[in-house]
Simulated assay, not measured.
Amino acid sequence: MKDYMTISETVDLLHNYELECDEKDVRQWIAKGEIEATEFEGNYHIYEPAVLSFLIDLSRVGTAYEKGIDDKTKIERLEEMVQELQKEIDRLRCEKLKLELQLGILPF
């Protein structure tokens, strides 16, 4: 049993993670170094951990944890996340208070 995947098998795996792509896309990601692969006799050998690492990196695009962003951008994105979380906390506190009032529970 081989311990690597072909480009076609990599496409199938990425489809399992609901990423729409084709062999051309995978070849481009390999060329850009986004998916690590080795070339052997004209074919690429791709290891599953490399594909999973690519998926993790892809899921972090636009967040404070995106690969390759500078510290200023990271801080800005973290501050945005904190603001969004604070809004969610406020919303949940209001919801909790409404539910307590509906149930006749006095807030503490």
Rank of each mutant, 00 (worst) to 15 (best):
E9F: 03
L99A: 14
C21P: 00
W29S: 09
E84M: 09
E66R: 15
R27E: 11
V51N: 00
M81F: 10
I69L: 08
L92K: 13
L92F: 13
K24M: 07
A64T: 08
C94Q: 12
R93N: 14
Y17K: 10
I89C: 08
D57L: 02
E76C: 10
K32V: 07
K98T: 15
P49H: 06
E18W: 14
I105K: 13
R93A: 14
K72Q: 11
R77N: 06
L101E: 14
N16T: 06
E88S: 15
R60G: 01
K32C: 10
E80A: 12
Y44K: 08
A64K: 08
E79K: 15
H45P: 00
E48M: 05
L103T: 09
E36P: 05
L19D: 04
K96Q: 15
W29R: 08
I46K: 02
E20N: 13
V26D: 00
V26I: 02
E100D: 02
Q102T: 09
T73K: 14
V61F: 10
L14Q: 05
G42L: 02
L99P: 11
A37R: 06
L106I: 15
Y4A: 04
S59C: 06
L106P: 15
L55F: 04
E41K: 04
S59E: 06
E9W: 02
E34F: 07
L55C: 05
L85A: 08
D90P: 04
D70S: 11
G104V: 09
P49K: 03
V26H: 01
L103N: 12
E100P: 00
L55N: 05
E76W: 12
K2E: 08
E100C: 03
T10A: 03
I7Y: 05
L106R: 14
G33L: 07
Q86M: 07
T6C: 00
A64V: 11
G33W: 03
D90A: 11
H45V: 04
P49W: 05
R77V: 05
I7N: 05
A37D: 08
Q28F: 10
D71P: 13
T6R: 06
I46W: 01
R77M: 02
K98S: 15
Y47D: 00
I105E: 11
A31E: 04
S8F: 11
H15S: 08
L78G: 03
I105R: 12
L78D: 00
V61R: 07
E48L: 07
C21R: 01
A50C: 05
L58C: 08
L92T: 13
G42H: 03
Y4P: 01
Q28W: 06
I46E: 01
I35E: 00
I69S: 09
L55P: 01
Y4V: 02
I30A: 03
I7H: 02
I89E: 11
R91A: 14
N43I: 04
L19P: 00
A31P: 06
D25F: 01
N16M: 05
D3E: 12
